[in-house]
Design a protein around this nucleic acid. Sequence first.
DNA 1: ATTAGCACTCTCGGTATGAGAGTGCTAATT
DNA 2: AATTAGCACTCTCATACCGAGAGTGCTAAT
Lengths: 348, 348
Amino acid sequence: MEYLTDRQKVILMLVIHDYVRNAVPVGSDHLVRHYHLDFSPATVRNEMAALTDMGYLRQPHTSAGRVPSEEGYRYFVGRLQEDVDLPDSTRQTISHQFYQTRHDIDQWGRLAASVLAHQSKAASLVTAPLSETVRFKHLELIATHGRQVLMVLVLGGGDVHQRVFALGEPVNQEQLSNVANRLTKMLSANDLDGVRRLAGAQPAGLEQDVLGWVIAIMERSSTPGFGAFYSDGLSNVLAEPEFASPEETRRALRVLEERSLLEELMTHTFANHPNGVQVLIGGEGNWEELKPFSVVLSQYGAPGLATGMLGVLGPMRMAYGRTISAVRFLSALLSDMLSETLGDDAMR
Amino acid sequence: MEYLTDRQKVILMLVIHDYVRNAVPVGSDHLVRHYHLDFSPATVRNEMAALTDMGYLRQPHTSAGRVPSEEGYRYFVGRLQEDVDLPDSTRQTISHQFYQTRHDIDQWGRLAASVLAHQSKAASLVTAPLSETVRFKHLELIATHGRQVLMVLVLGGGDVHQRVFALGEPVNQEQLSNVANRLTKMLSANDLDGVRRLAGAQPAGLEQDVLGWVIAIMERSSTPGFGAFYSDGLSNVLAEPEFASPEETRRALRVLEERSLLEELMTHTFANHPNGVQVLIGGEGNWEELKPFSVVLSQYGAPGLATGMLGVLGPMRMAYGRTISAVRFLSALLSDMLSETLGDDAMR
DNA sequence: ATTAGCACTCTCGGTATGAGAGTGCTAATT
DNA sequence: AATTAGCACTCTCATACCGAGAGTGCTAAT
């Protein structure tokens, strides 16, 4: 990386600031006038030319102003990352909102997505926390209709799963309850391996069938990308001028609707950088579809117990400062709430 | 409603068919050539003029072809509704997909939304089924951390709810389990009134606190619009040429993202017409925001037990035949699956 | 090292223009 | 009486063509 003089840094920051605000290429005149710089447009032009040579700025065409390049954004974000924080009043408002839904776990994800979308004015993504070690907690079997059985399985950490299946022969509710109680007692607090081991020792029959389902669910629920997925603020992104044209709109929508790409991105990112807020600018060369986007991501949760991810996807021309601080703040907030709720005991 | 000659009907159908396909105003020449009509363009012009007078067609401007009006679509849909059906092969494919997820209730909604979006090439909406009478089934209390308690409440029909709350003083897991067992035994199979009555007879204390939460959840879970909400295929709609312009895109997105409007629409529609597939064209004058859209809706479920709604929202220029039949088929399919799963027994 | 001056480049909005599509009317035809 | 050929007319859309304006890069002066 090449060195920038202080003045070049100032100019780079201002160009980014202005471009993020107005979505219009920034010219030397405009910059000097608008920010009361104490050097002349010509000087700015020279510096801009230098910044362009170094790859931090781009020119859409010969006679337009400058626009930050991916490199430019990266430099900016690198400098910036440490010292931004959400205003106190905002933090309090958000904390308050979460305080009000503190009892209702199911709402946390939605609220986080909503807050994040609102703060960043971009699209937000939140995955529900996933327990890292799955433990059996409670089993319920409900006779419904003929040989149909509804199974409700509660796992440690409060994951709840439902399945429907049919038995070989009709069984009444009383028998089912007996089986459920016996299995609950037997399996209680076991992890997947434990359940497998105990299942091996059981004779074939109703118990064995149910155990098969329990194991299947416990296997699936520990694979990442399985849990709930909240998203909000798509319209924020599509409202940005860079997605005005129909093809751009389509491209953007494909990315936003296609959950799998984002999951891959998240998993991949955190495999390499598990901690802190990650900023991916323009897909970082790896994701062609994300070229016009930037993504700000963070993990949250209690490491070793349960973790989820949350983040923001927006145009590369994004208010990074605000977004990064929002992601960091929410990640910390959710982590606190989660570890308060799912203390160590809950996982056993 | 005025009478149409057979020839006028043919022409109206063809105009709609062609316009739905190509999104281009239909001219008399084009119609005759493309569909090998055995009368001349001039005749078609006369008939078109008549249809325009009667309000079934519109002219975007003096020298463009004709476009169906809302009235035109309505007439068309009215004639059509009885005799369309999804091709056998499609029905089998869909049935097969559902067969594969038959065990996984949680997936039904998502799958239905996906299939519906795919079949109609528009945006789909599915609400999870909601039990009409809520009955207590099972309660689980899990000590997590300090005085935090995680409560899992299973209601008849398999609704599962989670809440977190804090107790006045620490209570260990054993005590909690005792309380949970006692309350489960006491409340089992009671509806909201029953639970209220039993709660009244309890002394204040831990039990009373828990009962308060149970009642709150049971109250909320019986209000419509509370359950899960699946949606898919937004991009199908936004890809349509009528939403190409930025403002139109925004308008469309507001409608699609704003869940409340659609819920209001659904509730209102089924209050008046509980049965069968409902088609709302252009908002029917009541919903300004839905002016450019049409909505095809149906209820599904076992009436008296649990019902949900599903439907499609797309541009007024919609393939009504296919969409109506898809909605009807899926509604029937889900109803079957639901009543098979939640037979009478499940609701007690 | 900075800046004023200036020629040059490129985009963008507005206007003209002409082809093409489609209509509605009239008069002829069946 | 219904249908159709013929035709003048209207309106849109794509294209081309400016001219204004914004912004640059270079040179020469400060």
